[in-house]
């Protein structure tokens, strides 16, 4: 029984990892940079949810459209102002600029909101439901289902729309895309904006479950990398599978062995797997699918 609820909790956790990772993956697949600021952007989005909640008093779930739009805008500006300007420079510059950005954002949150743990309460989902014999808060069910839905939407967007197909085309052959009349630089900015907007979705979904403080995005950010690398860069489904495996693994380890060490367990696992299978668990080629 304990194991079953650990697995259920792991699925909810894994779904959120998958969502944060999807944004990272999109940016890596299209723009070909690793966005080390993704975790800090999630933190910013969570504080965005908090600000919305304290200003309006409305249920935090209502913040979703606002936070998604604001984060998308922030992502667009970050790309245009920073990333686009280092794309032709050395990898070092690209690596460190997103790192510096993440650090600036995180500590700006600390400076503005202080180190306290803040919480938002949801009246809508503040009850316990029983699903297949497992008791879970409605909020975590919503987080899991909402994340799965958002990843599904992303997949449909990439595969069934003209712009989405253009994004995939750019990911595969930027020069050919440019020669087909696609403005590659704009597609890059769009991909970065969408990738960042996904942290807004994640924030609105997870805010009722997690307390908000400046470090909150760090673990999710690093976990998202691990998910992306293990799932195979660019593969939406590979990443989703990896996210579930990691979420469940972490949750089960926390239940059966030790809560404190569950994160360390995942990191060790990651280092081992990274070295053993640098191309990810599921394949050799980087792709956007």
């Amino acid at each position: 029984m304990q194991l079953v609820s650990a697995v259920a909790g792991g699925i909810a956790l894994g779904a959120i990892y998958a969502l944060v990772a999807a944004g990272l993956n999109l940016v890596f697949g299209v723009v070909k940079i690793i966005n080390f600021a993704q975790g800090a952007l999630l933190t910013v989005a969570l504080y965005g949810v908090y600000v919305f909640y304290s200003l309006t008093g409305a249920d935090p779930y209502w913040s979703l459209p606002v936070v998604v739009l604001v984060m998308g805008g922030i992502g667009y500006l970050i790309h245009r102002g920073l990333i686009d300007r280092v794309l032709r420079k050395e990898r070092t510059s690209q690596l460190l600029i997103t790192f510096g950005l993440g650090m600036a954002l995180k500590y700006l949150c600390l400076a503005v909101f202080g180190p306290d743990h803040l919480g938002v309460a949801t009246a809508m989902a503040d009850r316990v439901v029983t699903l297949a014999g497992v008791r879970m808060t409605l909020a975590s069910v919503i987080a899991a289902a909402g994340s799965a839905l958002a990843v599904g939407f992303l997949y449909v967007f990439l595969h069934r729309t003209r712009i989405g197909t253009a994004i995939r085309a750019v990911a595969q052959q930027p020069d050919s895309a440019e020669l087909a009349g696609i403005d590659v630089r704009r597609v890059y900015a769009l991909a970065f904006a969408v990738g960042t907007a996904l942290t807004g979705v994640a924030a609105a979904l997870m805010a009722p479950i997690y307390t908000i403080q400046p470090d909150v995005g760090d673990t999710f950010g690093v976990m998202a990398f691990i998910v992306v690398i293990l799932g195979g860069l660019g593969s939406v489904f590979g990443a989703a599978t990896a996210a579930l495996i990691i979420g469940i693994g972490q949750s089960v380890f926390a239940t059966l062995v030790d809560v404190q060490m569950s994160t360390a367990f995942i990191f060790v696992l990651f280092i081992v797997l990274m070295i053993a299978r640098p191309s990810g668990l599921f394949g050799r080629t980087a792709r956007v699918a």
Binding site: R162, T165, A166, R168, A169, Q172, Q173, D175, S176, A177, E178, L179, A180, G181, I182, D183, V184, R287, V288, A289
Partner: peptide
């Protein structure tokens, strides 16, 4: 280049020019 395409310039580059993971029809649409 993308602006020149709109002006009627069309370069078919050498080598692998297609988008390998898109279907033939998606390639045509692109």
């Amino acid at each position: 280049a993308h602006a020149l395409v709109r002006r009627g310039m069309c370069l078919v580059p050498q080598g692998r020019v297609v988008f390998p993971l898109l279907t033939v029809e998606e390639n045509l649409r692109m």
